[in-house]
């Protein structure tokens, strides 16, 4: 079941689109950690009557929702990335039973580090060697 879901998500590119959206949102939340307190501080200074109950100091607590959202999104992104893409898909008949390299075993497995065979792209001077 897990393998079929994984295959469907990868082959239909729904997993790619969802993960791309999560990554983009996580980046924006990370920026929000720094920009949201500044934004609130500017608002307090521009409209002091609306923010009468707010403290006069720099509202550092405004960064907390952004930080929590960033951490949760990044965690979900990482778990989904590990589940969907850290193990290459193998052509397998769908009627085969569950294998040890699927499901939670994949998520909690150690990261497959690049071997010398797949690190040769570094010599080409580009970061991932995707556009060779």
């Amino acid at each position: 079941m897990s393998d079929r879901l994984k295959r469907a998500l990868v082959e239909s590119f729904i997993g790619t689109i969802a993960l791309g959206y999560l990554l983009a949102q996580a980046l924006l939340y990370f920026v929000g950690i720094f920009s949201r307190p500044v934004e609130q501080w500017v608002q307090q200074r521009m409209y002091p009557t609306l923010a009468a109950n707010a403290s006069q100091s720099f509202p550092i607590e405004a960064a907390l929702p952004q930080a929590i959202s960033f951490i949760v999104l990044l965690l979900v992104f990482y778990v989904l990335l590990r589940w969907l893409y850290f193990q290459p898909m193998v052509q397998r008949h769908p009627s085969l039973t569950r294998t040890p390299d699927s499901g939670w075993a994949v998520i909690f497995a150690p990261i497959p580090l690049p071997t010398p065979a797949n690190t040769s792209y570094r010599k080409l001077g580009r970061r991932s060697g995707f556009f060779r």
């Binding site: 790619t16 993960l19 791309g20 990554l23």
Partner: peptide
């Protein structure tokens, strides 16, 4: 590398 190859 995974981010690049998965198109994410």
């Amino acid at each position: 590398r995974i981010l690049a190859e998965s198109h994410v």
